Amino acid sequence: MADMSASASLAMTHLVPLAKEFDENKVTPGVLGFIVFAVMALAVWGLMKSMNRHMGRVNFTEPDDKAAGAAASDAGKSTA
Rank of each mutant, 00 (worst) to 15 (best):
H54M: 15
G46C: 09
A70S: 05
L42S: 10
H54L: 14
M48K: 11
L47F: 14
A6D: 08
D3C: 04
A38W: 10
A75M: 02
T61H: 09
A43T: 12
T79C: 08
F34Y: 15
L47M: 11
D74N: 12
H14F: 02
D65W: 02
K49C: 07
F22K: 03
H14Y: 03
L32K: 15
R53K: 12
H14R: 05
S50H: 15
T28E: 12
G69T: 07
A71G: 00
S50L: 11
A8C: 10
D65E: 03
K49I: 04
S73F: 07
A75G: 00
N52K: 15
E21F: 04
N59S: 09
M40S: 12
F60P: 08
L10Y: 01
K66P: 01
N25H: 04
V44D: 05
L32C: 13
D65A: 04
A80E: 01
S5E: 07
V39L: 10
A38N: 04
D3T: 08
M4L: 05
A75V: 01
G69I: 05
S50N: 14
N52V: 14
L47N: 12
V27G: 06
V36Q: 13
A41N: 07
M4I: 03
A11R: 09
A41Y: 13
M55E: 10
P17D: 03
L47W: 15
M51D: 07
V36R: 14
V58E: 09
E21H: 06
E62D: 09
S50W: 15
A72R: 08
K26D: 08
R53S: 13
K77A: 15
D64H: 00
K49A: 11
K20C: 05
A75D: 03
D23L: 03
D65C: 01
N59P: 00
D23M: 03
W45M: 11
A2E: 04
V27A: 07
K26Q: 13
F37P: 07
M12E: 12
T13M: 05
A38L: 13
H54A: 13
P17L: 00
